[in-house]
Design a protein around this nucleic acid. Sequence first.
DNA 1: CCCAATAGTATCATACTGTGATACTATGGC
DNA 2: GCCATAGTATCACAGTATGATACTATTGGG
Lengths: 136, 136
Amino acid sequence: MLSVRLDSPVPIGEQILAGIRALIALGSLNPGDELPPVRQLAGDLGVNLNTVARAYRALEADGLVRTARGRGTRVTAATERPTGSPAEVRARLESTLTAAVADMKLAALSRDDATQLIADLLNRYWPDANQKGEPS
Amino acid sequence: MLSVRLDSPVPIGEQILAGIRALIALGSLNPGDELPPVRQLAGDLGVNLNTVARAYRALEADGLVRTARGRGTRVTAATERPTGSPAEVRARLESTLTAAVADMKLAALSRDDATQLIADLLNRYWPDANQKGEPS
DNA sequence: CCCAATAGTATCATACTGTGATACTATGGC
DNA sequence: GCCATAGTATCACAGTATGATACTATTGGG
C-alpha cells in the first residue's frame, strides 16, 4: 500500500511524500490513523530512515499529519488542515491539470476516452451521493 | 508565452520542457513550427543555453520535435510521434490523474467544483464538435 | 523512580543532478 | 570559401537527495 521505485528519476523522498499525501487525500489513511514509525517504513521500503523522516516533516508542514517525538505521527483532522488562498490554490490546480490534459492529448486519447477516464477516477476516488458509481 | 520561475523548487530545465510540451500538446505550437534557437530562448529566459538545449533534446527523445545542427528545431507531425504501449500509457496517466484528484481533494474543493474545473479546462484546451464550449 | 523500548531529530559525509562557462562542429547563404 | 546561424560536447561547480550515525523526547513496566 505504498511503494517506491529506487531507480526512478523522481527522488525517493518525493515518492514517499506524494504516496502518503495520496493515501490521506483519497481516504486510505484517515484522521487519527497512525503512520508507521520512520524506521519501520524505511525498512519496508529499503531506504534510509532520514528519507522517511523528512517526508513526514514535509507532511507536517502541510498540516496533513502531526508528529511528536517518542509518540509517533498521526493523520490530522481535515478541519485543521490549512488551505492556501483560493487564488493560489486555483493557480496551482490549473497548472497541474493543464499538464494532465496535455499528457492525455499526447497519449493520443480521444476526447471521449479522456472524459471517461476522468469520470472513472472521480467515481472511484471521490464518490458522491448524486453519482451512481461505487467506491472501491 | 513561456516563462520559468528561477526560484521554483522544480528545476528550470524541467519547467522549460514541460512548458514546451504543453505548448505543443495544446496547439500553441503546431507541426512544422520552428522553436526559437537555444541561444535566443536561453537569453529571453535568462538561463544558460545548455539548459534549453537539454530540454530540446528531451523533446526530441519524446519525438515531439526534430532537431538538426545548424538548421534549428521544429515540431514534428503528430503522426510521427511514437506513443508507448497502451498499458503503460494508461498506467502513467492514471498515476498523474490520481495525484491531480488528490490535490483537488486536499484543496477542499467540492466535487462539483472539481468537475466544473475539469470541464472548463477540457473545453478550453480540447475543443470538440459535440461540446458547446469555445476555445480561447 | 529508573530503565528499556519506542519514535522522531540533528549532524555530518557523499554521490548525484542541475546549471553554467566555454569551446567545438554542422548547415546554408552570399 | 567565409560567415552567420544553430545545435553539441566537455568540463567545473553548487545545490540537493540520500545515507550513516549519534542524539533527544515520550511512554510504560518493573
